[in-house]
Amino acid sequence: MVVASCGPFWEAVAANSADGQVISRSGELVRAHPTTSSTKLGAYPTKAQVRIKCKVRGQNVNGNDIWYRLLNREGWMSARYVINYHYVRWCAEGGGGTPGPKGDKGDPGERGPAGPAGPAGSAGPKGDTGQTGPAGPTGPKGDTGPAGAAGPKGDTGDTGQTGPAGPTGPKGDTGPPGPTRDPITLTSANQSLPKDTSQSFNGPACPTGSKVIGGGFYQSNTPSDALLLSSNPDPAGNLWQVWLKTPPTASDNTVKVYTICLPVG
Rank of each mutant, 00 (worst) to 15 (best):
G139C: 13
K195W: 12
S24R: 04
V264D: 01
W76F: 12
P134N: 06
T162Q: 02
G63A: 05
F217A: 13
E28K: 06
T144D: 03
C91G: 11
P194F: 14
P101H: 04
A236V: 10
P8Q: 09
V3I: 14
Q131M: 11
P176D: 03
D234G: 11
W76I: 04
N62C: 00
P99Q: 03
D234T: 05
T187Q: 11
Q59E: 07
E110N: 08
K53L: 10
P34T: 05
D155V: 05
Q131V: 12
G214Q: 06
P45G: 15
G124K: 10
Y68V: 04
K141S: 12
P194T: 14
V3S: 13
G63N: 03
P119N: 03
P179M: 04
S220L: 15
P146W: 07
P235T: 07
T159K: 04
P223Y: 10
G215R: 01
L41K: 08
T132D: 09
A226G: 13
C6T: 15
L41S: 10
S37R: 04
S122Q: 10
P45W: 02
K141R: 15
G145T: 07
Q241C: 11
T159I: 02
S230I: 07
A150G: 07
P134C: 12
P263V: 00
T162Y: 06
A43H: 04
A147G: 12
A32E: 13
D225P: 14
I23T: 15
Y218M: 05
